[in-house]
Computed example of a mutant assay.
Amino acid sequence: MSGLPASPADWSVRVIDLDGVTDKAALMERCAAALDLPDWFGRNWDALADALGDPGQLPDVAGRLVLVVTGWEQFRRRDPEQWETALDVFGQASAANVLLSLG
């Protein structure tokens, strides 16, 4: 990520709460809701990567995004392969002005 902005106003915060999520479909629904994605959002890994790849295109995002993912432990235990894919997608977004925090 290039130099950090001087003002908190340059950042938008979105929380994706995965508490109770046990499958990919539910994870995608939580992401769509937290990021306020349109109904036509594809609900797949590529679509999520595209949405996070340019946070400026997300509704009400001020250019840089802090993405806080909470309640992820159960999902990780239930479906470790899908969780690894989610981490990859979130990690790729980190190169596009997204700061990831696992809460």
Rank of each mutant, 00 (worst) to 15 (best):
W83R: 12
A86K: 00
L65E: 01
P55Y: 07
V89D: 04
G53N: 06
L4T: 04
V68T: 03
P8E: 03
G20I: 07
P55V: 08
W45G: 01
A86G: 08
A49N: 11
A32P: 01
A26L: 07
L4R: 13
R64T: 10
N97C: 04
P38H: 04
S12I: 05
L18D: 08
D36S: 14
G56S: 13
G103Y: 02
W83H: 14
P5M: 02
R76G: 00
P38E: 11
A96S: 14
Q74I: 06
A33D: 13
P55H: 09
L35C: 07
R77M: 11
G42P: 06
R30Y: 00
L4C: 04
A49D: 15
R30P: 04
L87M: 14
M1N: 11
F41P: 02
G91N: 10
A86P: 03
D46H: 11
V13C: 07
A34V: 08
A26R: 13
L99W: 14
D19H: 12
D17Y: 00
P59G: 01
V61Q: 01
R64G: 00
D17S: 08
D10K: 09
V13E: 13
G42C: 04
M1H: 12
W40V: 11
A34W: 08
L52E: 06
S101K: 03
D19P: 00
L58V: 12
G91S: 11
L37E: 07
L65Q: 06
Q82T: 13
L48A: 05
F75N: 06
A47Y: 05
A25H: 11
L27P: 04
L67C: 11
S12E: 09
E73F: 02
L87E: 15
D19V: 09
Q92D: 13
E29T: 08
D39M: 07
W40T: 12
S12P: 00
R76K: 15
G3S: 10
T85H: 09
G103H: 09
S101L: 04
W40Y: 04
P80S: 12
E29L: 14
P80Y: 08
L27D: 02
A33R: 12
G56K: 09
T70W: 03
A62R: 14
L27R: 04
E29D: 14
A93I: 09
D50A: 15
R30K: 15
V61G: 00
L67H: 08
Q57A: 13
L87D: 12
D39C: 01
A9E: 12
R64S: 13
R30W: 00
M1T: 12
T70E: 13
V66Q: 12
D50V: 13
S12Q: 07
G71I: 02
A25M: 10
L99C: 11
S2F: 06
F41G: 03
P8T: 12
L67P: 08
W83A: 15
A33T: 14
G63P: 07
